[in-house]
C-alpha cells in the first residue's frame, strides 16, 4: 500500500495488547482515529517482529497528522499531533 501526502487515513481499531504478548509502536490513544498523511519517512524493519528476534519485513513508515482536540475532546483548535505509523496500521479513510 502506498499513501500520498494529504491522503486521509484511519488507524486500525485493534487492541493486540489485550490478546497476549506483543510489542507495538502505535499508541493506544490513536486507535481508530482519522488523520492525514504528511509524508512517507522511509522503509524500516517491522518492530513487532524485531522485538521477538523474528525475521522482520521492511514496512513503509509514514508521518501522520491528527487533530489534537478531536482526540481528547478538549484542547486548542488547530493544534495537532504528528506520529510515525507503519503502513500495516493504516487504512484509507
Amino acid at each position: 500500500m502506498s499513501l500520498a501526502p494529504g491522503q486521509a487515513v484511519r488507524v486500525k481499531l485493534e487492541w493486540p495488547e489485550t490478546k497476549g504478548p506483543c510489542h507495538i509502536r502505535t499508541p493506544h490513544y490513536l486507535r481508530g482515529r482519522q488523520g492525514v498523511v504528511e509524508r512517507r519517512l522511509g522503509s524500516f524493519a517491522n518492530p513487532e517482529d524485531l522485538a521477538f528476534a523474528r525475521p522482520a519485513a521492511a514496512l513503509d513508515l509514514y508521518h501522520v497528522r491528527f487533530d489534537q482536540p478531536a482526540i481528547w475532546g478538549e484542547g486548542h483548535a488547530g493544534d495537532a499531533i504528528v506520529v510515525e505509523l507503519f503502513e500495516t496500521w493504516l487504512e484509507p479513510a
Partner: peptide, 20 residues
C-alpha cells in the same frame, strides 16, 4: 469532536502513557 470514540476504555499496556 465527532472523532471521540467510546471504546477508549479498552485496557492499555502500562508503558503506553499518552494521555493517561
Amino acid at each position: 469532536m465527532s472523532n471521540v470514540l467510546p471504546d477508549h476504555d479498552v485496557p492499555r499496556a502500562h508503558h503506553d502513557m499518552g494521555g493517561v
